[in-house]
Structure formats: C-alpha cells, structure tokens
Amino acid sequence: MTITRSPHRLRRVTAGLAAAAIGALTLAACGDSDPLDNSGGDSDTIVIGSQEYYSNEIIAEAYSQALEAAGFEVEEEFKIGQREAYLPDIESGAIDLFPEYTGPLLIALDQDATAKLSDDVYAALGEALPDGLRALEQSEATDQDSYVVTRDYADQWGLATIEDLTKVTDPIVFGANSEAESRPNGPKGLKSTYGVEVSFTPIDDGGGPLTVKALKDGDIQMAIIYTGDPSIQKNDLVPLEDTKGLFLASHVVPIASDDVDDEAAAIIDEISAAMSPEDLVALNARSVDEQLSAEVIAKEWLEDEGLL
C-alpha cells in the first residue's frame, strides 16, 4: 500500500534533513568569523573594547568618537562582558584600547598586589601589565568600590567612616559579589583593618538594583556599590569613608596596545584629563535617568569639553 508510494514522498524529508545538515555547518562556520579571533588584526585599525557596564561603554564611546574625528580607523567591540571574559583578549592584544579601572585591574592581574594609594596603584599596574600593553595617563575620574549604608542606618548609629561601624552593636550583614568574600576588602579585611565583624551574603549583580533593594529592605545593612553609581544619590545612600585605605584607588585608566601610537595616545590622554569624578557620575546619571545611548551621551560630553 503506502510503501510503494512512499519513497518519492519520503525523499522530501531526506532532502530537508540534508539541507539542515549543510545549513548547520555553513552557519557554524559563519559564527566563527568573529573579527577578534585573529588576534592583532589589521594594525591600521584601533579596536576599542568596553565592559558590559553602561558607564564603561560611555567612556569607550568617547575614545572611539575622538579618535575617529582625528582620522583614525576604529572598530568598536563594546559590551563584551565582565573582566573575566574580556581580559584574555586584552592580554593577547586582540583589543587595542580599553577603558579600565586601576585598582580592580591590578588585583585581576596580580592577586597579591599591596599598593593602595592612587599613584602606587597606577605604578604597580604599569608593571603588572603584560608586554605590549601600557596604561595611558590615569584620569582624575574614579569609579571605585565603596561600602555604603542607608541614610537611616547611618543616622541611627552615627556613621561617617568605616571605622564608625565598630559602634554598631547589632549584627551587620554585608552583601556584595561572591568574590568579595575572599578579597582583601571583604569581611576578613574589615576585621583586620578596622576590627569590624560582619557576616557575608552574596548578591551577584555588582552593586546593582538587587543590592540596592536588599539595603532598603534591611536584608543587608552594608553593601559594596561603585562610587560612580547614580543610585547612591538617588536612594540617598551613604558611602562610608575609607580612612585606612582598605579599598584600592580606582581611577579610570585607558589600557592600550602597541597599535595605539603616540598621536592616538595624546588624544586619549586629553579625554582622561578632561573627565572629572563629577563628570563621570553625571554621565552615568544621564544613562540611567534619561536612558540615552552611550553614543549620544559621549558625543555631547565631548562637544561640551571642546574635544570634538
């Protein structure tokens, strides 16, 4: 019955599956054509990267637009994850220019780094960077980890510095990314540097909205949030002053490969010099409040500063 008829009908299935197989291989091959795979690449083009972090992307945009305006050929590789994802590409030179932060990058490159102060960290970073990479001038703008508490909590216990936490008699729950637990600025560092005892709970959103909510809910009493984060102002959070240098200084610093020549480096240095800490917070706020794209925010800032 059907059997005699089926071969020619069934052939369609066969054809379909064969097409699928060929398609799979072709598409997989396409997926491989990531321009970054051939590390180094065309040396005329400056490949600029940015973290998956809106603030970092704005700075990278500023680099990109300024270089392009000066006649350089640039290629943007933005929003490429967190440090663990992109660091290999910087180390290999697949990315030529990347806005980084002195302290966190130093720790990522050298777990045992002891430098704390701005200039020491910058110097140590210069040495920790692999051959072929250099740190351009660091900016005055900082975006660094800070311990924050809510205004109510600060008022209740009279807190202004981290040291003041010793006055708190209730248990303190501290929330931050998981890696903070083992970092020098985590619970152990707090104990040894300031004599403050806290318990730790991980909130892996990098001081984002979940962390802020946990603070406001009272689930945690203290968190690590970046000083550049507009949510500190918006939620009336209080960053505690780090009088004994528990946190490494964390200035915005462009990391450049050899493909970035002196002329290009000079342009980037100008941007770093023009960017104040207040500027950075303001740029971040525009991203969050006005929901503008990094491209627009960077362009308008460059124009305001007369850099474009």
Partner: peptide, 8 residues
C-alpha cells in the same frame, strides 16, 4: 583552544 568570547 578557541576564544572564550566567540559565538562558536
């Protein structure tokens, strides 16, 4: 030994 940050 392919790049971490690749579609592949």
């Amino acid at each position: 030994s392919i790049p971490l940050r690749s579609d592949l």
